[in-house]
Structure formats: C-alpha cells, structure tokens
Design a protein around this nucleic acid. Sequence first.
DNA 1: CAGGGTATCAACCAGAAGGTTGATAAAGGA
DNA 2: TCCTTTATCAACCTTCTGGTTGATACCCTG
Lengths: 236, 236
Amino acid sequence: MQTNNNIYPAGLYSFQDECLSLLTGVLNVSKAVTYLVDNQRKPICYKTWQLQPAMHRQYMDTFYRVDPLHPTQFVEQTDATVVKMNDLVNSQERYNHPYYRDFISPWGVQDIVEIFLRVDNKLIAGFSLFTSKQQPEMRSEDIRKARQLHQFMQFSLEQSLDAPKHSHFKSFCEQFQLTPKERMVVELVRQGLSNKTIAANLDCSLATVKTHLQHIFCKTGVNSKAEITSQLYNQH
Amino acid sequence: MQTNNNIYPAGLYSFQDECLSLLTGVLNVSKAVTYLVDNQRKPICYKTWQLQPAMHRQYMDTFYRVDPLHPTQFVEQTDATVVKMNDLVNSQERYNHPYYRDFISPWGVQDIVEIFLRVDNKLIAGFSLFTSKQQPEMRSEDIRKARQLHQFMQFSLEQSLDAPKHSHFKSFCEQFQLTPKERMVVELVRQGLSNKTIAANLDCSLATVKTHLQHIFCKTGVNSKAEITSQLYNQH
DNA sequence: CAGGGTATCAACCAGAAGGTTGATAAAGGA
DNA sequence: TCCTTTATCAACCTTCTGGTTGATACCCTG
C-alpha cells in the first residue's frame, strides 16, 4: 500500500483519525474523507466517515482526475489551507463541469471544504468535508471555525513531528523587510550574544548595534532581544 | 528524589495558547481563562481571553476559595474532563452560594464550562469558558463539541509529550539537575519573557525569579537568559 | 531533632539593555 | 540634482538583568 521512500511516523495515522473525528464532530458535515499525500502528491491512506463506499470507489476509479480540489491543484499555493469548493468554482462552471454534474451532484453533495496540512511547505495530509443539499449552506462563520481547527491541527502536527523550522529566520526577516545588516544582528541575537559581542562581530560600535536593534524592534513590534529569539522558534 | 512529575515540558505554554485560541474560536463563549496546575494542584500560569483584569484579580484575591470548579475539587474524579457549572450545582444552591451571588452573577456570567487536561491521571491544565447572560444557554450539542475538542487536545498533548523536540529541554534540565521550579523558569526564559513576567506567571516575586535564575546560571555555567535559549536550540 | 535541599523574599550595586534625539555619510533611484 | 534608504556613531536617561548577601520557611531523611 505504501510507496517506496515514503515513511510516515507511526503517529501520523492515528493523528489522521483524531483529526477526522475532530472535524466531523465539531463542524456540521454529512460525510468526510481524509488522506495522506506521498512524494508524488498522490493521495494515499484514505479514511472515510459516513461516505458511501460506492462513492469513494467511483472517485478512485474516475473522478479524481477532474477533481478541482485534488492536491495536485495546490502545488504552488503553499498558503492554501482551507478551500471552499463553491468559492473556487463559480456556479456557471459547476453546472457544466463533469465533476459536479456527474459525480458531486448525483451523490447529493452541496459543497465541499478541503483542509490541507503541510510540513515545511510540503503537503502531507488533506481532509474533504462534505455538506449535503439538505443542510444549510456553509457560512463564513463555519469557514472561520474550520480555519481555527486547521490552525490547531497544524500546530499539533508540528509539535508531534518536531517539524524543522529552519525557514523561520528567513521568513521572519522577509516578513518585516529587514535590511542585510539588521538580519546579521538578528542572527547574532539568536545566538544569545550580548550587544558588545555583536558589535565586535560586526566590527562596529555598540551604539550602532543599539540603533540596528531599535530599528528591528520598531519594524517587528518586538520589545526585546529575548523575544526575537522566541519568535524565531515559535511561529504564531 | 524530589517528585519530578512537575516538569513542564517545553511547548506546554504555547500549547496552552493554541488550546485557548481553539476553544474560544470554535465554541461560542464570551470570555475564557486557562491555567496550568502545579504539584499542589494550585493553578499557575494564567492566560486570559476577553476577561476583565479586575474580574481575574477579584478571583485570585478572594473567590478562588469558593470556586466549585477549582482543580482541587476534582482530585478524585480523574475522569472529569468537561464539566458544566450549572449541571454541577443546582439553581437553588447557586442562588445562595457566594461564588455565584457575589462573583459570577455580578460579572454577567450565565454559565461556566471547565475543561481539564491530564497526563497520567494527573491534572496539568484547565480551561474555563464563560457564557454571558446575553448569550443563549449552553446546549448539550455545545458540550458534545467541547468534549470533541477536549479529546483532540488531550491526544495532541500526549503526542507532543513524546516528541523528540522535548529531548533538548529535558536533557538540558536533567544534565544539570535542575529542580522543578528551575525547569519552569527555564521554559519561561525560552519564551523570551522578562523576569517580571516570569514572576507573574509563577505567581512569585521578582526576587524569587532572580534567585532561581542565579541557581540556574550557577548550575549550568551559562551567563545570561539569552544564552539559555540558544543552548536549548543549539545542542546537538 | 539536626541538616540538606528547595522555595521564598529583600536590599543593594554595577553593568547591560532599551528608548530617544540628533548627526554624518555613502549609495541609489526619481 | 534631490531625496530616500542604509549604515554609522554619540550622549543621555530609564529600566532590566546579573551578581551578592542574608534571611525565613517547609519538607524529607538520617
């Protein structure tokens, strides 16, 4: 079942179960499915909740090819976390699209919300939540809750996988548009050096280091060197 | 030889933040507060959400003594996870109880839901969720969702306690034989907090924090809080 | 019961860090 | 060319941190 060089930590499978239970328990959905994503961005390890086996089989045989929410559709958009189908595709397109006309609609589905989990910007798991035509339409309030749940699942995942966070430094610097010299200061601050030592490292005066720090504090909204460090390790 | 079951693993504090965000984001509450629980079952490390500082102060000064949802009330009931105040105490008792009459009611609170997290049957964290008198009453549906959220938080907690991430923190603390309190200080230092904030979190004086730090510096050979942080992340 | 370990707090001091103002100078784009 | 950005430095002040000393109190163990 598992492909070659794709090793998932044992906990990921139960994590998947727990997430599915959480999402279906808290959000008002009629059926749901979850999967992991392999190196080739192919969904594997499906787990379903109140989803007809025949429907799943039909998807696996045919309709995955035209699924607008398929993981391969979100290769570039690494920021796509919670995607609502009816927002992604307008009603006109839906009417003509084989995925809706021949698959989604006949199974009584009104809308689908897709939730993606990533590690290091790499998609590793997804959840499809279905609402039926009998249910009230998904409101922005529900999407907000879904995003909230996503945030916690993502946090939980990073905690348990001990996800590498080396990209934080870069994203931190870019996010606040720090200048090259300021970035150097940030890196030396991260190492726990005193201002005097930083000045020695950069071959400038203590006053200059303090000015750089002042600019960094101002740009980032942080109040101390210690906070910079904790920011670099705790994204949130 | 002292009881070491009071170790707060690295990340527990941000875990607390995330849980608070999750609960207040998904459930319909007006204010909330979370705390960790120490060996003596005393709540520490409070974090509030939309809760008036004056109300919190009033609780800390006086009313914690008569709080029917106080962690010490649930010593035996290791299965108590989600407790609704109005279920626990009937309306007759509520009317005469000083906690309701003089504290809860004047602050416009209708009901409180308490959520407990345990590790090895030992209570380690709690969340108090408040609904206001303006809100509709908590239904069993909401409690069911709260239980669902609890289940996931509990799962996530157990997962992250086993995560390799904690090995640095743990080995650092064990290597230098830091006491439970000192470990807490180390963790709060890691978060980049000032001594004053650490004191507030541990509910002790600034002087005590400085003493703990002095002992930590002495034991570890480190010279500053900033160095502690870099030690925790740079150990290989 | 004495003693070690832990936790608590106060007072004091020197030095580091944070915050502000102001100034100079090189580099690069409008 | 002017103006902005970036990098540099000084002086001044407040607050925070680190380092020290000393003291009280509790718990557990010998």
